[in-house]
Design a protein around this nucleic acid. Structure first.
Lengths: 339, 339
DNA sequence: CAACTTAATGCAACCGCTTGCATTAACTAT
DNA sequence: ATAGTTAATGCAAGCGGTTGCATTAAGTTG
């Protein structure tokens, strides 16, 4: 059996409680004894037992990571894994562990979350998505469970911790990237407006126009379904337009790739005829031909920061809910031509 | 505070141990009392406390999922997430939980694994990769810790549980897919032979040739670096060859996309001039233009099966190490032309 | 009917750590 | 020297289950 706090205590010639307090670096233990205890721990190769500790202190150092309920397709987005990686790396180095909730439906996920809370396994969560209305958030909020969102908070916005990209700024930056290269006729392709990241990026796109005194053409704005099997007809109209855009800001790399393919099919060359800038800087952008210039949103850091916040709040319950913005940067892959 | 086993016991008019035994469906409790107890549990909404149970029974129902140590790039492969999803879905529905280990270096990961074992948090692992020589496997094996591999076992092959694709068969099937469409000059593009999945797929490719009485051209076989920034010069030679292949089997979708781009650049049209079939059926294949026909290896199922095996073995320690083969199937996306 | 099984349940000691409170020792102040 | 502080440590009762063994009641046998 593993070495316990008692073994350490006997070796150090103190009581178990002293050892326990030493681990927690409790100030009421003298530096001298602490040293003795630490020496004993080192000699025995002591590792504290998590389960016991959690049980006794009634708090599980375990964070549940909730993936969006969905079918296969959505998961392909590599930043989920990157966020998970950011979270777990931070957690593991802070003696926290994580557990994944990846159910197929929101109901199932809610069920999983609920039972994890009830059986004491998990007492804080990070959701890797944000939606207008989410039953899991409702539940967590009503139970007073600590949670953080990666993305923008819709519900209970002032009371929730969230870590996000400044999508408005990102949209503006992307647009300015094109403006700086001489483009003035810039289109925007995004998703329906309930997907806030998309509409925020668009808003930034409009801001950039305003600031640079460029007109905003309503025709230049295209909306596609959530899963863009194919681009809408409006796009083909727009591209046949005599006065068509010379560049596009598109809401993410998927759309970027889709747009690029579309251009190819109708004989337009990227970036010679059409410049493209998209978001996320995923491998999809990099593997496209030509690769698509994209705004990197630093997903690993999003995850790390979310973990940091959760752990801080777990250990410091009176902290107010923080909002964190992670910086982004444009990665030029060559799909933006200078006019 | 949550409802405990004692509350249930009082309500049911039995002792705590009886409640505990009822949970475990212990045969020495009469059906009659069990019913009483279950009714009480239901009435109180009782959920067993994991931590307490684990502590008392000295076994943590937690499985560690180890991702390959690596930098950002490798993670993009969506099947990691899919495997995680398969694992967690199975685990969550069997009262097991999972935790992710996603460190940047093998050493860090080993350290994380080691301390998770020592502090009793985790006592079995699933590795989402396989390598010729891995210090984590060495460690787990030497400590007698239960683990499973997704991929082929190199070390201690007879004693380890692994879940894998039959890559030889898959390679053969892919090749036959082309042969059936009239191709006789078929190339193969793969990775260095230490990546067993690649060499196995190639072996299957050769088998298909043998069985169909087709000659194997050594020139038709191209090897690329692990991270294919660009395809090797030998490929360009091969494609300029008067007698060049009309089709290629390539080791994964990345290579498939790379090949397709390469063809485009030198003016060859897929599938008219060159047919391509690759493996994994990832979104990369689907988003390519044209989409690339690919062998789906059912990653979610790989994960589920690994979890199944680990849980079986955890609850039944005398079981011998199993090897599981998950079926694959070709998904035709239109990159294979009938001659 | 006494002696003996057998089946069903309860007792109580853990699992390894935490923590409020008591205890002890060493000081200070009067 | 006595009472009053203060600092450092130990005691012991949990946390919520598990489980070997004891106990009790019912059933069997000669």
């Amino acid at each position: 059996m593993a070495v316990t706090i008692r073994d350490v205590a006997t070796l150090a010639g103190v009581s178990p409680s002293t050892v326990s307090r030493t681990c927690k670096n409790n100030p009421s233990i003298s530096e001298e004894t602490k040293e003795k205890v630490r020496a004993a721990m080192a000699k025995l190769g002591y590792e504290p037992n998590f389960q016991a500790s959690n049980l006794a202190s009634q708090n599980s150092r375990t964070i549940g990571i909730v993936l969006p309920a969905s079918e296969r397709s959505m998961y392909v987005n590599s930043f989920f894994l990157e966020m998970i990686r950011g979270i777990t790396m931070y957690c593991n180095s802070h003696q926290y562990i994580t557990t994944i909730i990846a159910d197929e439906t929101e109901e199932d996920a809610l069920q999983t979350v609920r039972s994890m809370i009830r059986n004491g396994l998990v007492n804080s969560f990070i959701l890797l998505y944000s939606k207008q209305k989410d039953s899991i958030i409702d539940f967590l909020h009503s139970e007073g469970v600590l949670y953080a969102l990666i993305g923008k908070a819709y519900q209970f916005a002032n009371q929730t911790i969230y870590v996000d990209t400044d999508n408005i700024q990102a949209g503006k930056d992307a647009t300015e990237h094109l403006i700086q290269r001489g483009h003035t006729k810039i289109g925007f392709i995004g998703y329906e407006k309930t997907l806030l990241f998309s509409s925020d990026r668009r808003y930034g796109y409009e801001l950039a126009h305003l600031e640079h005194g460029l007109p905003i053409h309503p025709d230049y704005h295209i909306t596609v379904e959530h899963t863009p099997n194919q681009l809408p007809e409006t796009l083909s109209k727009l591209l046949n337009y005599p006065n068509r855009p010379t560049a596009f800001v598109v809401a993410d790399d998927f759309l970027g790739v889709a747009l690029e393919h579309y251009c190819q099919q109708i004989g337009l060359v990227v970036p010679e005829d059409i410049s493209i800038i998209s978001f996320n800087n995923s491998l999809f952008a990099q593997l496209a031909l030509p690769p698509i210039t994209s705004v990197d949103i630093n997903s690993i850091q999003l995850g790390m920061e979310a973990a940091t916040q959760i752990i801080n709040h777990a250990e410091n319950p009176k902290l107010a809910a923080t909002k964190i913005i992670i910086p982004h940067q444009i990665v030029e892959w060559g799909s933006c031509k200078k006019l």
